[in-house]
Amino acid sequence: MNPFLKAAILTIIVIVFAFLMIMQLDNMRLDYLKKDIGIMTYTEQSREVILDYYYIMDNNSSKLCEHLSNLHKKQFVSVYSLATKMQEYQKKSVFNYEYEVLKNSYFLSLLKVYIHSFENNKLCGKNEVPLVFFYSETTNCQLCKVQNDILSNIAKKCKNIRIYAFPSDSSIEIITILSKKYNVSSVPSIVIDDKEKLDGLQRADMIIEILNKTGGQCS
């Protein structure tokens, strides 16, 4: 047999094999992300069902608050890590068209958690300090990465805070509305407790100071 034909056949076999492996790896990555996002949406759904139950069938507000705060504590919100992971995984995958949908559903779930936390505060009184971190998705923002590292450490130190991260240049409309509400013009930007806005890279001790003032219980 012609050696070139032989080589061509071998190449095709090898390439097909390689692509199957790539597909497998890409799918494993996607499944991993989907699992985390699935937990988020599931917890958010159970919150809605619990609210419905107490509004329609049982008007016991003290039990409702207990349930809500339990669920809220259970809710999986990772700082910016899941979003970063998604971005990295998208870069690293060959078959990556599912990521846009996945990203949108993640941010919408995160927004839901953020907005519902205000409702929780209204119903049951304030029990934690929300911190919103705006970063850039499209531009290469090095300072955002640094700020993310700092915030990840703060999250470990403080008991009573919750950090939400959103890309200010996202195509999701509600994020744009939110960033307009807080007058975010540059990244990185931090909004603490719905009112205190900090522009630019912030040092950990500065943030902790403000958080302690608003009841973040940081060490």
């Binding site: 790539i22 991993y32 992971k85 995984y89 870069k91 690293k92 990840s152």
Partner: peptide, 18 residues
């Protein structure tokens, strides 16, 4: 402050396989 180092099994570039 200490720097975070994230080690992730899925951090391999797919094209590297080929």
């Amino acid at each position: 402050m200490d720097i975070n180092i994230n080690i992730d099994l899925f951090f391999i570039d797919s094209t590297l396989l080929i």
